[in-house]
Nucleic acid binder design. Sequence first.
DNA 1: AGTGAAATGAACACACC
DNA 2: GGTGTGTTCATTTCACT
Lengths: 157, 157
Amino acid sequence: MRLDELDRHIVARLLQDGRASYAQIGDKVGLSAPAVKRRVDRLRADGVINGFSAVVDPAALGWTTEAFIEIFCTGATSPEEISSSVRVHPEVVAAYTISGDASALVHVRARDIQHLEQVLERLRREDNITATKTSIVLSRLIGRPTDAPSPEPVTGQ
Amino acid sequence: MRLDELDRHIVARLLQDGRASYAQIGDKVGLSAPAVKRRVDRLRADGVINGFSAVVDPAALGWTTEAFIEIFCTGATSPEEISSSVRVHPEVVAAYTISGDASALVHVRARDIQHLEQVLERLRREDNITATKTSIVLSRLIGRPTDAPSPEPVTGQ
DNA sequence: AGTGAAATGAACACACC
DNA sequence: GGTGTGTTCATTTCACT
């Protein structure tokens, strides 16, 4: 499934304003509203667009503390096992297996430092997990709405 | 500014479906559509909700490679300097100053490994940056739509 | 703060060019 | 891909509690 320029343009607009009407988008990209809807429906069916969401300030909801935790696991722990050890903790907002020394990198949000400490204790109690290495976020320098990329992959120069 | 239960409920619904109508939300939370709209307007004015966005699959847009890069800087480089060194690179989707050895942690998306290498070269050419340590993402285990937290901070147990 | 009603405008599903 | 139309539904504003 290939995306043309119009598709990318529509995705760009929806990243910027997920509640834009089809007519509004159509004005910007040069299509009629029904044509935009047809393309958005197709983009959703193809899994390019997976839904819509509000962009919320975590601090305003009481999540003022954030950390990245490197997870070290026993011998040959599978990604699935890591995933299930980690996903039971609701404070985990993202987790990745990565190259390098650690088995996984986990992005955590907590109410405060005390809460973060509790999360760490709970993670370290998991059977697979032998060690953790925590980097507390001091400040967010950059963060696009959804950590989303721009719709146009930059061609290498 | 404090949020009551209804506000959190509304935010939860908008995180799940950013295009939900006010009437739909009202049905779930027990309010009329105008009442929901007034609260959403207030949440936006207060900066709790910063906008709406589509949830897009980066791979479908051609961004198949992802990495976390620890950035090491000269002596006393300020967060602002790091930020400006890093934000000029469009492949950077997020960046944080963190505790620990590194000065900052940068989340990067690239088209492929070759492209990632180019990003690394460009980053290392920045004056402030003395070294980088890259962890390539092998697989995403968990990733809530927007790396957003749930609207209810979990109380420590 | 909330509701309810009325007017405007968007969405949707058609058939059609 | 663009129009047209008609129906349904959402948004918005206002009066009122």
